[in-house]
Computed example of a mutant assay.
Amino acid sequence: MLNLARVIATGRLMHHAGETRSFTGRAQARLAQMMGVEQALLVNSGTSALIVALKAAGIGPGDEVLVPAYTWVSTASAPLFLGAIPILVDIDESLTMDPADLERKITPFSKAIIPVHMLNLVCDMDSIMAIATRHGLAVIEDACQAVGVTYKGRRAGSIGHLGAFSFNHYKNVTSGEGGAVITNDGHLMRRAEVYHDIGTFSADYSVQDWDFVGCNQRVSELTSAVLLAQFGRLDKDLQNRRRRRARNIDRLLPLSGAKVSPHHDPDAAVGLTLTFENSQDAKEFAAQHSAVTRIGDIKRHDYVSWLPVLQHCGADPRTNPLLSAQRKVTYSADMCARTIDILSRTCLVA
């Protein structure tokens, strides 16, 4: 509340580029320091963060972007905004992108990978980065659901070429809405800054750099003030979740007949899911425990619910890359059946 009062008292609710002592400038510096990267850019949503990151990486019409079949629809729709085509990749029992299926899905049109750290569960970033290096692909980490979580001593979002965060109501840090892009690459950040600020951004605002036309995805000082106040509590909150995870394993695992789902960094694990032999066992266990949800019953994150994507629906067919691609693009409800099977057999423990 104190930060918000200070913003209102100044009468300046809009962030101006280059103002390092503004709440936005301070929040960006604090976020970069926390994540162990050179630069951070606050934007108005996690969806915007993905779009800005893809644009920074040079993704455009006809390019293929590999995304997991289990994620929020923004991961798949962000490439479409830039004329690119999302290619769906199965997950494995870790609920993150399966590196083996990822490599199978790569084609000469592939340009980027968006691994998603779902439910505070980290991807196998060593394997994904190795695949990306072999094929010359950009990696944009979608860490929207894992802000602050670590993978082998590094923060999720800091391992790929760019990282994207969300700060909406349901995330580890929230300002209602909001997002961020992080990177160690100054050229990529420069492109991100230009694109998010209508092509007018400059560290010295007296100089106009019209590199290319952009959008307005800026964040307000009010949002930045809320975020800055919360960043200091993030690590403590995550540590509390780790302790709760350990307690839940001790309490629920003996009752479940299941196994703890594979995790790519067990010592730093925050999220907890249980994998069952079949979907019925998972459904019955979830019905018996209020803190447990069968993930297959949460339909909004599996690819089958992305009807505008699967059905090639756009506001205008003339600008729909799924219709204008020089090759046939086909999606179906059973194209990632392994993902649906895994989700039906997995329970999330809150």
Rank of each mutant, 00 (worst) to 15 (best):
F201K: 02
A27S: 15
V73N: 12
L227S: 03
E93T: 13
D142Y: 10
G148L: 09
G25I: 02
W72D: 12
K299V: 08
H15P: 02
G60T: 07
D316T: 00
E177T: 00
L228R: 04
M129P: 02
S158K: 01
A225D: 09
Y151L: 01
C123D: 05
R243E: 10
Q230S: 09
A76D: 05
P308E: 13
L102P: 04
A78C: 01
H16P: 04
R190Y: 12
Q288L: 13
N184H: 05
I8K: 15
R190S: 14
Y151E: 01
D101Q: 00
K171S: 12
C336P: 04
T133K: 15
L121K: 08
M97D: 03
K171W: 14
I298T: 08
E221D: 07
G257W: 09
T107R: 00
L2K: 15
A146Q: 03
V65A: 06
A69L: 06
N248S: 07
V139Y: 00
L307D: 13
P108K: 02
P262K: 09
P262S: 10
D90W: 10
A333K: 06
S175D: 03
R327V: 00
P308C: 14
V226G: 05
A143Y: 01
D197N: 03
N216G: 14
R327N: 00
Y170W: 14
E64L: 05
A156E: 14
A5K: 13
A225T: 02
F109R: 07
R327T: 02
P321D: 08
Q288I: 01
S344A: 11
S158C: 02
V292P: 01
S77Y: 09
H187N: 11
G232E: 02
G314F: 05
L188T: 06
F231P: 05
L137D: 10
G62W: 03
I106W: 00
L274R: 00
